[in-house]
C-alpha cells in the first residue's frame, strides 16, 4: 500500500508539469487545447528515439520540450491565422500528431529499459529511494516558480489578459494572435517535457499513452483549485501541482478496489472530473439553502406568516 502511494506521489510530481501546461492553455488563455493528447506522446517519442540512438538523456528531454513548443505553435497558428475554432484546431493537431508520433518512433512502442535515462542517471547520482521524488519535485517547483514570474512580466500579463478580455488587450496594442500562439507553444512545451520524463520513468514510450491526457490535466487543475484555491497566480499554480499529485493518489486508491482494473483508469478519471466539477455546485446550493433558513429564522417567522 505505502509503496503504491509513494509511486503515486512520484508520478504525480512528473505529471504536474503536464498539468501546469494544461493550466496555461485552459485557464490562462481560456483555450481548451486538445493538442495535449498528441504532444505528450511527441515529447516521449522525441526523447526516447534520441536516447535509443545514443543521445544524452538530458539533451533528449530538452529536445522534447522544443518539439512540444512547435506542436503548440502549429495549433495556435491554425486557430489565429486559419480562423479554425479552438477546439477543432486542437483536435486536428492531436490526430495529426498521432501519425507524426508513429513516424518519429518507427513502431508503436519504444522500450527504454536497457537505456540510460534521466531516471537511471539520477538514481546513480544519489543512491536513495527518495532521489527520483526529490529531484522531480525540485524540477517541478522550478517550473512552477518560473511560470509564476513569467505571468507577471509584461508579456505574461498580456497573455493573461488575452484569456480574460481579448478585445480590451487588443485595444492596448497587444498582438493577441501571436500571444495565443506563444501561450499554446509554452503550454505544449511543458506537456511534451512531462511526456519525455514519464516515458523514461515508465521505461517505455507508447503511441497510445497520451489518450485522455487533457482530461487528466483538467482533473489536476480542477481538483487543485477546489482544495488549494486560486486567488493569486502563485496559489493557482501550486494548486495545479497539488492537484496532479492528489489525482494520482485518488486513482491509485481507486485501483485497489477489487472490482476495478487498470482498464477502468479512463472511466475513473472521467468520474473524478465530473465529481470535481459538480460537487462545488451542490455544496454552494446547500450553503445558500441553509443561509436562507437561518435568515428566515432571524426574521422570526414574519417572512413566513
Amino acid at each position: 500500500m505505502l509503496t503504491a502511494l509513494f509511486g503515486a506521489v512520484e508520478s504525480g510530481v512528473i505529471y504536474a508539469i503536464m498539468a501546469l501546461g494544461v493550466y496555461l492553455s485552459f485557464r490562462v488563455l481560456d483555450f481548451p487545447d486538445l493538442t495535449v493528447d498528441g504532444s505528450f506522446v511527441t515529447g516521449g517519442a522525441v526523447a526516447s528515439i534520441m536516447i535509443v540512438n545514443g543521445s544524452d538523456p538530458f539533451v533528449a528531454t530538452m529536445a522534447a520540450l522544443f518539439a512540444g513548443f512547435l506542436a503548440g505553435c502549429v495549433t495556435g497558428i491554425l486557430h489565429t491565422k486559419g480562423g479554425i475554432n479552438p477546439l477543432l484546431s486542437g483536435i486536428l493537431m492531436m490526430i495529426a500528431l498521432y501519425s507524426i508520433n508513429l513516424r518519429i518512433m518507427g513502431k508503436p512502442n519504444v522500450p527504454l529499459l536497457a537505456e540510460e535515462t534521466v531516471i537511471t542517471k539520477i538514481e546513480s547520482w544519489f543512491a536513495s529511494d527518495w532521489s527520483i521524488l526529490l529531484f522531480m519535485l525540485v524540477v517541478t517547483l522550478i517550473i512552477k516558480f518560473v511560470t509564476d514570474l513569467f505571468l507577471k512580466t509584461e508579456v505574461g500579463l498580456s497573455l493573461r489578459a488575452v484569456g480574460d478580455n481579448e478585445g480590451m488587450v487588443r485595444s492596448f496594442s497587444a498582438n493577441t494572435g501571436w500571444m495565443k500562439v506563444l501561450g499554446l507553444g509554452l503550454s505544449n512545451a511543458l506537456v511534451a517535457f512531462s511526456g519525455a520524463l514519464v516515458a523514461q520513468y515508465n521505461g517505455f514510450n507508447d503511441v497510445g499513452m497520451g489518450i485522455g491526457m487533457i482530461v487528466i490535466g483538467l482533473a489536476s487543475v480542477i481538483i487543485g483549485e477546489a482544495v488549494v484555491g486560486h486567488s493569486k497566480i502563485a496559489r493557482a499554480t501550486l494548486a495545479v501541482v497539488v492537484g496532479a499529485i492528489l489525482y494520482r493518489i485518488i486513482v491509485t486508491l481507486a485501483l485497489r478496489i477489487e472490482f476495478l482494473d487498470t482498464g477502468d483508469m479512463k472511466l475513473i478519471t472521467a468520474i473524478i472530473v465530473i465529481i470535481a466539477l459538480v460537487l462545488p455546485k451542490i455544496i454552494d446550493r446547500q450553503k445558500a439553502a441553509s443561509r436562507k433558513k437561518k435568515r428566515l429564522q432571524q426574521l422570526g417567522g414574519k417572512a413566513n406568516a
Binding site: 513569467f150 507577471k152 512580466t153 509584461e154 500579463l157 498580456s158 489578459a161 480590451m168 492596448f172 496594442s173
Partner: peptide, 17 residues
C-alpha cells in the same frame, strides 16, 4: 494599468508592476 502602460511600448520580459 500595467497592460495599458504598454500600449505605446514593446512588451518585454520585464515585470509589469
Amino acid at each position: 494599468l500595467a497592460l495599458a502602460y504598454n500600449r505605446t511600448k514593446k512588451r518585454t520580459l520585464a515585470f509589469g508592476v
